[in-house]
Structures are given as structure tokens and as C-alpha cells.
Amino acid sequence: MSSANARSAREIVAAVRDPELPSLTIDELGILRDVRLEGETVVVSITPTYSGCPAMGVIADDIVAALRANSLESRVETVLSPAWSSDWLSDTAKAKLRAAGVAPPGSLSCPRCDSSDVRTVSEFGSTACQALVVCRSCGEPFPHFKTHQ
């Protein structure tokens, strides 16, 4: 396989979306760690946001399916080190989360009205990486992508 193919494999994998946060790709989330070639096989390394993230299986399946659609065989490996950090989210990724109604990690404010007068209802939300918050100004309940360092 040529290096051009390796580059396109990387592009294909980088475009796979997170099943729980479909506004973001796995690359933007920082869980895509490496794409390399072993002979004819594309080997993809991903890292979980949280240890028990149930989306890992789906993400691995989605990666294999996306590459297979481009006639590429692949294998997905899970790596734990270095441990994922919400610092790995780019500014673009944070803006996309906010536009999708999810307050990004960092200073917390309502994604609807921008008020910082908010109340955390639960540190554990609909997914392991999100907390549940309510805005005191406009009443909007929203998920907060937790700061995880």
C-alpha cells in the first residue's frame, strides 16, 4: 500500500463521528490516537474518554465499516496511555459542541443564552463524559462536557 493510501486511510478514519456526540468526529474529540499500516492492514488506535465508555465498541465497528467501504481491511486497538484529557478538544470542536447545545469543557455557561448563572443538577449525565446542568437565567437544561484532566 502506498503512502498516499495511508494518508487517505487517516482521512477516512478521522471523519468517523462519535455516536453519542455526532456533532464531533473522533479526531476532534481526541480519541483517535494513531492510524498506521501493517502490510495491507490499517491499524487504528483509539483511546476511551472514560474507562467504561460503552461507545467504544460502536466506534470501532464504525471505523472498520468506513475503511471497508473504501476497500481497506483494518484492525482497531484500544490504548490507555496517555490517558485522554478534555484538553485535547480543539477550539473548533468546542465551538461545534456549543452550537449543538452542549457546554464545552472549561468555564461553564449556558449554550442557549450565554449566562454563567447555572446550577449543576448531577455530575453524571446521559454519558460518562457529560454532566447535567440547568441555566438559572433562561431555564434551559443542558449537558456539560466535563473538564477531565
Binding site: S51, G52, F124
Partner: peptide
């Protein structure tokens, strides 16, 4: 309800580490 989510989350975190 929030507490059920919390307990489910913590259980899942424990399970994920156990699996590793």
C-alpha cells in the same frame, strides 16, 4: 432519576477498569 444515571455511570466506570 439523576442518581440512577450517576450510579449507572459509576458502575460502568468500574466495569471498564475491571475489563482492562
Amino acid at each position: 432519576l439523576e442518581e440512577e444515571l450517576a450510579i449507572a455511570n459509576i458502575s460502568l466506570d468500574n466495569l471498564g477498569v475491571a475489563q482492562a
